[in-house]
């Protein structure tokens, strides 16, 4: 990896390879403690520095996350869809004869390339209405999704692409 010219950047990259992960770790640590104390914060900060350095080999790239407002909007949309998904799947289980369910595999061609974005897309698909993402093509360009009830496979794919992938493309350009 080519080093940048700024002398400060190398130092920061060495000690804080993933500032966001550091922040997340500190916040999660404070939440785990379920109360605030200076010692807790200090230990959290130490963990927040040490863990990203130790595990930095697992995270070769930095996800180029932009547009925080859109990321928040996406989270809200996904949460709402999880609630809707629960009601839809519950209705299917309770009131439909399983033999009439049009359960099928569909292929979702991916335009996203960043592994982080694909992971978020696959996770969202798994949590939302009647779909579970099951496999990725070996070159990472298509996602295998199983639908519980999709009479129209084309429409299901189109909805996943416009509802989630298009938004993720704006968040991870």
């Amino acid at each position: 990896m080519a080093r940048t010219e700024h002398p400060g950047a190398g130092l920061r990259e060495r000690w804080l390879p993933h500032p966001l992960m550091t922040l997340t770790l500190v916040v999660v640590w404070m939440l785990l403690l379920n109360g605030f104390s200076l010692g807790g914060l200090l230990l959290g900060a130490v963990l927040g520095v040490v863990i990203p350095i130790v595990t930095s080999h697992f995270w070769p790239g930095r996800p180029p996350l932009q547009a925080w407002d859109r990321a928040l909007a996406f989270t809200a949309l996904a949460l709402w869809d999880v609630i809707v998904a629960n009601v839809i799947v519950a209705r299917l289980i309770l009131f439909r004869d399983p033999a009439t369910l049009a359960s099928r595999w569909v292929r979702l061609p991916l335009e996203l390339r960043s592994p982080e974005a694909i992971t978020i897309l696959a996770g969202t698909i798994s949590l939302t209405p009647g779909t579970v993402s099951c496999d990725l093509s070996a070159d990472g360009r298509a996602l295998l999704v199983h639908c519980l009830d999709a009479p129209d496979a084309e429409a299901a794919v189109r909805e996943m692409k416009t509802r989630y992938e298009a938004r993720l493309k704006e968040i991870f350009p």
Partner: peptide, 9 residues
């Protein structure tokens, strides 16, 4: 089919 030239991983 994956439609991308390689199979499922």
């Amino acid at each position: 089919q994956t439609g991308t030239g390689s199979g499922w991983s």
